[in-house]
Computed example of a mutant assay.
Amino acid sequence: MALSIGRSFPLQPCSLYKSESIYNKSSLGGRCSWLRHAGAEITKPCTRTCIAAAAQQRPTWLPGLDPPPYLDGTLAGDFGFDPLGLGEDPRSLKWYVQAELVHARFAMIGVSGILLTDTLRVAGIKTIPLWYEAGAGKYFANTETLFIIQLFLMGFVETKRYMDFVSPGSQAKEGSFFGLEAAFEGLEPGYPGGPLLNPLGLAKDIKDAHDWKLKEIKNGRLAMMAMLGIFVQASVTHVGPIDNLVEHLSNPWHKTIIQTLASSSS
């Protein structure tokens, strides 16, 4: 199909146009209506494929990539990234969304805790062990007791989360949590809310909170990458991230990841 404006400037198929004013989705047979737009004359009707291609154009993790059909852009942070096809099954996709959300939140908490304690240690404000040695420290109970407590608490939380995933809203019903259900105000799976888990009252209308969801998952993905970097950094340098940062800033041109990896392998 070709478009012509005036007597020159031939244009390409209408799939290049994003504006809905060029075509009419409601026309019979999925074809474009005969429209004129700024002097442009459509000399052939568009096919349904042409309309779908124009409608589906959206940001993707790789420019020019055609996202898989099951990633239609409705999920927060959906940029069509699924090279292994893990989300082809709709039920699995829902679970992977929840799994990513939980891992993102743990990563954000972990990175924040590591950076805070490492800053206090390096600044000499408080005597704190390196983050990867913190588990060997002595606390209010021995290691075995702490491990059992953690298993119980995490098991309880994860069970409640799974039950809410299977039956959304079930954990907010009266009598499901010792009369404290109102303190959580289950909004939807993955977003319990309430004064305990949403003290600032952000995104009270979770259905229209796409921007907040997008910000959270973007920061969470960044935190997961940062956590991976901290793991590798500790394995190679045997110090904390703030120590590495201070060393890099002391000699930015010679204290880099390349020199560090080269010296560690030699």
Rank of each mutant, 00 (worst) to 15 (best):
M1C: 06
L11W: 06
Q12M: 08
P13M: 10
L16N: 14
K18E: 14
E20G: 03
I22H: 04
N24K: 10
W34K: 15
L35Q: 13
R36Q: 13
R36S: 14
E41R: 13
T43W: 04
C50K: 03
I51N: 02
A54S: 14
A54M: 11
Q56I: 05
T60Q: 03
L62P: 00
L65K: 11
D66E: 14
P69A: 10
Y70N: 01
L71E: 13
T74R: 13
G77M: 07
F81K: 11
P83K: 05
L84K: 11
L84E: 05
L86D: 11
E88H: 11
P90T: 03
R91F: 05
W95V: 07
W95P: 02
Y96T: 03
V97D: 08
E100R: 14
H103T: 14
H103F: 15
G110S: 15
G113E: 14
G113S: 14
K126E: 07
K126P: 01
Y132H: 08
E133R: 12
A136Y: 12
K138Y: 03
K138P: 02
F140T: 09
A141W: 02
T143M: 10
I148N: 04
I149N: 10
I149R: 13
Q150C: 11
L151M: 15
L151D: 07
F152G: 04
F152T: 06
L153A: 12
M154F: 12
G155R: 01
F156C: 09
F156S: 05
E158W: 11
E158S: 15
K160Q: 12
Y162V: 10
Y162C: 04
Y162L: 12
D164S: 00
F165S: 00
S167V: 09
P168D: 01
A182S: 13
A183P: 01
F184E: 02
E185A: 11
E185L: 06
E185N: 13
G186Y: 02
P189V: 04
P192V: 08
L197W: 03
L197G: 03
P199Q: 06
L200H: 12
L202V: 14
D205P: 03
K207G: 07
D211V: 14
D211Q: 12
L214P: 00
K215S: 08
E216R: 14
R221A: 09
R221P: 02
I230N: 00
F231P: 00
A234F: 07
H238W: 02
H238S: 13
I242C: 04
L245V: 07
H248K: 03
H254S: 11
K255A: 09
K255E: 09
I257G: 02
S263N: 06
S263M: 06
